[in-house]
Nucleic acid binder design. Structure first.
Lengths: 122, 122
DNA sequence: ACGTTATATCGATTTTTTTCAATATGTTGA
DNA sequence: TCAACATATTGAAAAAAATCGATATAACGT
């Protein structure tokens, strides 16, 4: 029931993760296969701590998985989570959601075209 | 060619637009059909200028269309643009993109498992 | 023209995000 | 154990985003 609420925040986390240009580029990089942080770092003009921060955002949203391989940290796109986000977005445009209340400003939705009479709101 | 660059920013704009909780909720509202600003406003605990700001973000990203109907501003989800974003995201996980350079930190990708010898980077 | 209503813009403030230098942690090979 | 390397964390500063009150603009009815 309020699992939905939690889900929304999970999706929001992912959307936030994708809303930064550097991170979106990192995601595109990882789409080609796993990479270690040192490789990713070379593709950008940012410092190592900044990359580490971005990777934390990405792993924190579960869009990216990480495993240690010796000295190196290997990052990979979590396809399932990524697909999950896409599925969520894909379900939005359909009218099965009705997540919040709806009121009407002027009787009906399209009745505003010919707003001969206006409904006063108390 | 660099149309791709522009496209990326368009997608990034949309992702930024969706990365705010209020705006994501507005999108869900609009998924049920067009609404005027006054109606949307009632669903949130924000002021009218703030809503106007958010709607500007949403229309600026083209995820939402707006038309004046008399005194009212009617907002509606731009399904085509929304789908465009979803399509873009859906294409990311496949290896047809290779958007940026790739280097290798230790020979191959999986060779790091048994990193008997390490390749020094000059 | 005027008053009312709906929305937009402006200016300032608060909040959040991004960034980096310094430093810490963890791993490996000698 | 220790030096070297890869990555993480911390603390502070800069940049960007969100918010609001005041005010402007636009449309309508009278």
């Amino acid at each position: 029931m309020d699992e939905n609420v939690t889900k929304i925040s999970q999706h929001l986390l992912k959307l936030k993760a994708l809303s930064d240009e550097t991170r979106l580029d990192i995601i595109s990089l990882l789409a080609n296969g796993p990479l270690c942080a040192c490789d990713i770092l070379e593709s950008f003009k940012i410092t190592q701590p900044t990359l580490s921060y971005h990777m934390k955002m990405l792993t924190g949203s579960n869009l990216v998985d990480s495993v240690r391989k010796g000295k190196w940290m290997h990052y990979s796109l979590n396809q399932a989570e990524f697909s999950g986000l896409i599925d969520y977005l894909g379900r939005i445009p359909k009218p099965e959601n009705r997540p919040v209340v709806r009121s009407s400003c002027c009787g009906g939705m399209d009745s505003c075209d010919s707003q001969a009479e206006q409904v006063e709101k108390p």
